[in-house]
Simulated assay, not measured.
Amino acid sequence: MITESIDYLRNDDDWVKTLLIGGVLSLLSALVIPTFFVIGYILRVLRGTMRGDETPPVFDDWGDLAVDGLKGFVVGFVYFLVPGVVVAVAVFLGVAGAVAGGGSDTAGLFGGLVALVGALVGFVLMLFAAYITPAALANYAETDRLGAAFSYGDLKPVLFNGTYATAWLYAFAVFLVAGIVSGLLGATGVGAILSAFITFYALVAAYYIVGTAWGELHPVAMRDEETTDERATI
């Protein structure tokens, strides 16, 4: 599956154009709005791969892409909000405890302990958020209902399924390798630019894996075919 995911983006003749657009948008992600377009594209990847479509989507219909990406951004923001808050509160309490103690060794030790425990709890919650978010995005992509991303009843069978767990690990491995390569390249100015394109490519490959696994767990018919059949019947 990893090999297929790496080859996925190149299944289209215009894959270089897609990679360039995605890389530039990723490079500009600090401006926030470009991130919506990237997430919107990833949702298109999910919709296509869960239906067995091996041809990657393109960047078009930018308005719809941005709105879809904004909804996906909200999903990720909600799931990562709690871990972020836990870490922030732990760090604040740790620093506040040390300051209130007047810089004593005991206060410093207590503050450091609080910060450490909070960081560990936050890390566990962050890992859980990273595990559930792809499934939440896939459920939203399948149903086009934002609420479906937060439907625990729908997500629970998937999250505890070996197929999804394996796919998530594969996707994580792809993204981890890309992150290491990007980190090494980031030491140079040119490398920092290239890392944005590598990250986008890895993101597409990772969500190809997730979408394919979701399709195995939730067989989704091609909507175009369904529409055609319905019209023919009428």
Score class of each variant (00 low, 15 high):
D64I: 03
L184K: 01
A221L: 09
P83I: 00
G153K: 03
L146Y: 04
P34E: 04
V32M: 04
G63D: 13
P56Y: 02
F128W: 12
G162E: 15
L159F: 00
L93Y: 14
A136Q: 06
G72L: 07
P57M: 10
W15Y: 07
F77R: 02
V124C: 11
L9A: 04
A232E: 15
A107N: 12
A196E: 09
Y201S: 12
G23Q: 05
F128K: 09
I209Q: 12
D154Y: 02
P57C: 08
D229Q: 12
V38W: 13
A196V: 01
T35H: 03
F37N: 09
V181D: 11
K71R: 13
L194R: 10
L203W: 02
D60E: 14
G186Q: 10
D61A: 08
A100T: 08
D53R: 07
Y152F: 11
V58D: 15
F172S: 10
F110I: 11
F175W: 13
V91I: 15
V190R: 04
A88C: 03
M222S: 14
V99I: 15
V45I: 06
A213D: 10
R231C: 00
V158T: 11
G40L: 04
G112Q: 09
F123C: 09
N161K: 04
G40V: 01
S151G: 10
V95N: 11
M1T: 08
V210W: 05
L217W: 04
A192K: 08
Y8S: 01
L109R: 06
G189T: 04
V95P: 14
L46D: 13
L109W: 13
W168K: 00
G162Y: 11
V204C: 07
D64M: 05
E142K: 12
T133G: 10
V95S: 08
F77S: 09
H218E: 14
G102F: 01
F175D: 13
F92T: 10
V86I: 14
R47I: 03
I42H: 06
V87P: 15
F80E: 08
R231S: 06
G186E: 06
A148E: 15
V45M: 08
W214G: 03
V158S: 09
G48F: 13
F92C: 00
A98M: 14
I39A: 02
V45K: 08
D154H: 03
Y152N: 10
E4G: 03
L137Q: 13
T188D: 14
T143H: 13
P157D: 06
G52E: 07
A88M: 10
T212L: 07
I39G: 12
A130C: 10
V124H: 15
S151Q: 15
Y208W: 12
L185Y: 06
P157Q: 11
E230W: 06
I180K: 03
T143P: 12
F77V: 00
L43E: 01
T188K: 01
L116N: 09
I42W: 05
Y170Q: 15
T55P: 07
V220P: 05
R10L: 10
P134W: 01
A136D: 05
L81A: 12
F80P: 11
T55H: 14
L120S: 00
K17F: 13
M222R: 15
W62H: 01
F123R: 02
V32S: 04
V117N: 12
E142N: 06
L146Q: 11
W62C: 01
G40T: 05
P219W: 02
